[in-house]
Design a protein around this nucleic acid. Sequence first.
DNA 1: GGATATTTCTGCACCGGGTGTAGTTTTATA
DNA 2: TATAAAACTACACCCGGTGCAGAAATATCC
Lengths: 229, 229
Amino acid sequence: MWTVDDGRPGLRERKKQRTRAAISDAAITLFLEHGFGKVSVAQVADAAEVSKRTLFAYFPTKEDLVLHRLADHETELARVVRAREPGAGPLAAVRDHVLARLRERDPITGLNDRPDVLRLTRMILDSPSLASRMQGFKAGAERALAQALRETADTPDLTSRLAAAQIVTVQWILAHDNARRLADGEAADARYAGAVADAEHAFTLLGNGLRDLTPKRTPGRSPKRSQKR
Amino acid sequence: MWTVDDGRPGLRERKKQRTRAAISDAAITLFLEHGFGKVSVAQVADAAEVSKRTLFAYFPTKEDLVLHRLADHETELARVVRAREPGAGPLAAVRDHVLARLRERDPITGLNDRPDVLRLTRMILDSPSLASRMQGFKAGAERALAQALRETADTPDLTSRLAAAQIVTVQWILAHDNARRLADGEAADARYAGAVADAEHAFTLLGNGLRDLTPKRTPGRSPKRSQKR
DNA sequence: GGATATTTCTGCACCGGGTGTAGTTTTATA
DNA sequence: TATAAAACTACACCCGGTGCAGAAATATCC
């Protein structure tokens, strides 16, 4: 009768999205309350009023219940490098992007201290299986970035992989460091200046190389190199 | 009576070592024959004539049945950096160490084509859970190296972690690349020259920085920079 | 509007990795 | 030789994840 065929996703699709959200929400609520390791998927399914089998139809693993939101970030740096304006170096493009994200307190930089974000970050970092899955994302980001470098700068394969891994690693460590500091109680706004300085330092180091890492070994003050970070 | 109390380990300890070896051997044999994912720990325990519970008393996880041999490598680079002669830079120390290992065809460089090594490498790389556990080793190596840098060069915390991660990553990618090539049929001796060249290139890149990564984006040949790797 | 085909959901049994426990065998000690 | 300590075993169990067969819900066609 009066059913209108507008372009919007039909009842089936809408229901699926609602179910998906319900499962994910129930999961995160329970995980935050009792800890990732102490809640079974069966309990999550129960809370979401769905069978265990259905839960696994929506999320392939328990970890995905938490991390599915972060999946897009896997290709983020690759996209940034691809989208940089002609003539710009990939390293500078990534640096600028990271600085911009810091400015917006994007949770991915670790510089967001909204309580829920904070608790989620802690949970991920504290759970071995979640942390390990994050490492997987990192590896994926390296692959994607390597390909982007290979295609948009004409760097050979090995160089692309090396550069990609190093760039992703820098972003990763910076985010990790910020997250740890906020988890230890620092406020995001108070940390901001330091985070920016660290990011700039890190990208400078990566740009200039580890060439002049202090070779000093024996006790006694180092000869030169005043600036330290 | 005639029991002599020399310093050697005593019956109990000796038996434990034999059992441990028996379990590990049975595991690797079965895994190589049928694949890591297709053999259950119960089957391994069976083959080693040991109960499943005992198996897990010796090896905390299934993956450890394969990877326990590689655990020492986690601190290898850290030891190298600590043991470098005074006045030498950490980067050079690691580079020299890697080159030395390539010369000896140390399996850890990926440049060993003994059939059993080859098959084991393939198995590890092809099994997600083993590969992921390897990533864990990599992370451990980064932590250990960072600490060594912090203590023997007077680099600050963040810098140490960045440098450590980059150094470990280089070694990792080089090894991975060699392993892949040998797995694809290349002979170790034939690959050796290329492996050395790649290692030197990688450490040079790391020393000099990603500063001058070609910024070219638009199609059309790149303006300068002839040397490519 | 109803019949039918398709998709989704469900319960259930099962697998494999891993652990707790209680009791038995083996090695060490005296 | 008795006894204490350590190692091993069987068994039951938890949890994440999958295969399967049938029930329920949605879409489609007349």
